[in-house]
Write a protein that binds this DNA or RNA. Structure first.
Length: 189
DNA sequence: GTCACCTTAGAAG
DNA sequence: CTTCTAAGGTGAC
């Protein structure tokens, strides 16, 4: 997985029933979120700069609440400001589209590509999703391959499946997308 | 420069 | 249905 943004200033743990996520903050906002690491017991160090502490604490409350809601298959509610400046313009455009997808909804990589005006850049959209520094809150898991096939997921396919199941997307994806032969890839192949 | 990647539409077998 | 191809952005080597 991609390490957090270099401009990251503050790192705090997000404890959930699914493990301890790690949130990274820069002066501008949330700039990274790591999935729970099963291997390392390393704790998020709390290098909170004096004077900005309450600011990070306030953002972190929003982050924690939002992550828990998404894990429960609900809308995230109020999000903290996000610092996505570590991405290229192309990537930021992709992430912006993803952020607009509601719980239980999905788009295909191709649809996202069209939405940002680069209809042929489907693979690039996949790359951008993989480069997403804030999974879960920027719902890269709601982007499926054409025909509602699962596609891939850099942070571990199990997370993608788990999140989608809780949102009710599986085992009955998008009715509009059904009828195509690939739809049952997760179960049939 | 080359390659691998969370893709996809189209054409061929 | 399976297999092959080409096309796009980006980071690693």
């Amino acid at each position: 997985m991609k390490p957090a943004n270099a401009s990251c200033t503050c790192t705090l743990p997000v404890r959930t029933d699914d493990g301890e996520f790690v949130a990274h903050y820069s002066a501008k906002g949330l700039c990274g979120l790591d999935f729970p690491s099963t291997t390392s017991g390393r704790r998020a160090r709390q290098a909170v700069p004096a004077g900005a502490k309450s600011q990070f604490a306030a953002w972190h409350r929003l982050t924690t609440a939002a992550v828990k809601r998404v894990l429960a298959g609900q809308e995230p509610g109020v999000l903290p400001p996000m610092d996505l400046s570590c991405g290229t313009e192309f990537q930021q455009r992709v992430w912006q589209v993803l952020a607009g997808i509601k719980a239980g909804q999905t788009l295909s990589y191709g649809e996202v590509a069209k939405a940002i005006g680069r209809p042929k850049a489907t693979r690039a959209v996949g790359s951008a999703c993989g480069a997403n520094p804030v999974p879960v809150l920027v719902p890269c898991h709601r982007v499926l391959a054409a025909g509602a096939r699962l596609g891939g997921f850099g942070g571990g396919l199990e997370w993608k499946t788990r999140l989608l199941e809780r949102e009710g997307v599986f085992p009955n994806p998008n009715p509009a997308e059904r009828g195509k032969q690939g739809m049952l890839s997760v179960f049939a192949q």
